[in-house]
Amino acid sequence: MLFSCENISKYYNGAAVVKDINLNLPEKSSVSLLGPSGTGKTTVFNILAGVSVPDGGSVRLRGENITGKAGYVSYMPQNDLLMPYRTVLDNIILPLIIGGQSKKEAREYAGDFLPKFGLADCAHKYPRQISGGMKQRAALLRTFFMDKPVILLDEPFSALDVITKIHMHKWFLSIAEEMGLSTLFITHDIDEAISLSDFVYILQGSPGAVCAGFELLPRKSREKDFIASAPFAAAKKEILNALGLGA
């Protein structure tokens, strides 16, 4: 297994926030952790990213124990964290610069990726001058440049309107395919989880616990308008049932 966590638990002031979370992310797959607000999604995210230490359990990357250690996975927090004083391009290349590349080198390297991310025209603008969708794409490109084997995304598209979101999903799927990404999503959006993932974990309750997992139709065998298809509706129905929202 590329990336996994076993029996993750976290307590705040003596009360459990999440309990016994087990997740698996195979190589080049896309997995979602789906759940309503208040079930500890971001708590799990921070633990997986290594910026928070769990009170129990372990996080593993290719079997190696990386619990509580930052710097092993690429991640993008809910807030895009683009720096207002850096241009879009200079925000994107930050991981490369910190990694020791020269500014010129990094800019040239990143320049080749800008068109694919729809950012060619705004490379030299400041974050406040671009749209929400562009900000998310810029933050995503910065995340890719962290260049770790796993990408964690915490509700990356939740600030976008539904139509822009569908565009972004399609775009993301093509990028993920092309770049062979292994991605773990945190989301509260059922449609998003189904659209983007091969496997969906459902997080429920307080303390948050994984109550179900669903294998979805592989991304390769999906039709173009998958989100309006019968397999999509069937998956959504199962998930709604698992969330206690079924008929």
Partner: peptide
């Protein structure tokens, strides 16, 4: 969070 992100980089 920004400090954490930079540290992770």
């Amino acid at each position: 969070e920004a400090v954490q992100l930079l540290r992770s980089m």
